[in-house]
Simulated scan of single mutants.
Amino acid sequence: MIETQPLIALIHAVPSGARIAQDAFAREFPEAQIWNLLDDRLLDDARTANGLDGALRRRMLRLIANAVESGAGGVLLTCSSYGEVVDTARTLWTVPILKSDESMFRTALSGPHDRIAVAASTPPAVPAAAAQLDALMAETRGTRPVHITTALSEQAAAADGPQETARHLADALAATGARDIQSVLLAQYSLAFAGRALADLLHLPVLDGAAAAARDLRARLLGERSTAAVPA
């Protein structure tokens, strides 16, 4: 029997991730009951350890275990730094467990566009996004080739409001010299609030990870075809 009001656990490393993800689920998956799990030392401890060590991986797995064993029908990690733990979690539990940007990347790669840009405002987000895209493209070997452009605007991280953030991101995209971009992916949840303004500036579809994950989980858990295809 399909649960019509599934419990979705959102696991966060920063408080801002909770607000952004909740807003996305309110729009894209309003039927869901949201449960926020926050460990605001996850990022600091990962930096201190210079990456994810065994103790940090086990810590995230305990958070996921708490969510699943307490009845969550789906789990989303909103922090990309811990995404690799999801691969282990999927061998332990059968409920959908998603990495922060996985649904966005899968949507983009399965859509009609083959010239995609990834926009970020912090340097670590660029290689993290590129690595995920490379891994997903390797999974779908034999399909059409996709050209990925990456753009970084650290000014966007300190911008005041969505319009200014969008302008900085648009400038960074223009500076890459790529003139044939068909869609843009936002590499961080913190940029989601500027997605609509950036789409208006560029006249291109702009995807963000939180909204894509919400649509993905809705399609999986309510048994409905997702409307999350890359916008035309």
Rank of each mutant, 00 (worst) to 15 (best):
E139S: 15
L222A: 10
A128F: 12
I116A: 05
R218H: 05
L185N: 02
A228S: 13
E139N: 15
L42N: 09
A129G: 14
G223T: 10
F25R: 02
D45G: 11
G195Q: 00
V184L: 09
R144N: 13
A138L: 14
D23M: 01
R90N: 15
L198E: 01
A158P: 01
I20F: 03
G54A: 13
A67Y: 00
T48W: 06
T4C: 07
R220Q: 14
V14Q: 12
L222V: 09
A18V: 06
T91D: 15
A157V: 06
H147T: 15
D160Q: 07
P112M: 07
Y82R: 04
A156I: 01
M1C: 12
A21W: 00
L222K: 05
A129L: 06
G17P: 01
I20N: 05
A187T: 04
L7I: 08
G17R: 01
S110F: 06
T176Q: 10
L98C: 07
L7N: 08
G195P: 00
T88G: 08
R179Q: 11
A120V: 03
D23I: 00
A55W: 08
A158Y: 08
G177E: 04
Q5C: 13
R57V: 12
G177H: 03
E154S: 11
Q5W: 04
R19D: 08
T150Q: 12
H113V: 07
I181S: 06
T176L: 11
R62H: 13
L133K: 12
P96K: 10
I11N: 05
A18T: 11
N50L: 13
T78E: 04
L221C: 03
C79L: 06
T165F: 04
A89D: 10
P96F: 06
S103V: 00
L169G: 09
W93Y: 14
I148W: 11
A119K: 00
A174D: 04
A232L: 04
V146D: 14
F29C: 02
G111W: 04
P231A: 10
V86H: 09
R144Q: 12
D44G: 12
P124H: 11
L169P: 08
A175V: 01
I64P: 01
A232W: 04
A72C: 01
A130T: 15
L61F: 04
V230C: 10
R90C: 06
E31L: 10
G177N: 11
M60N: 02
Y189I: 02
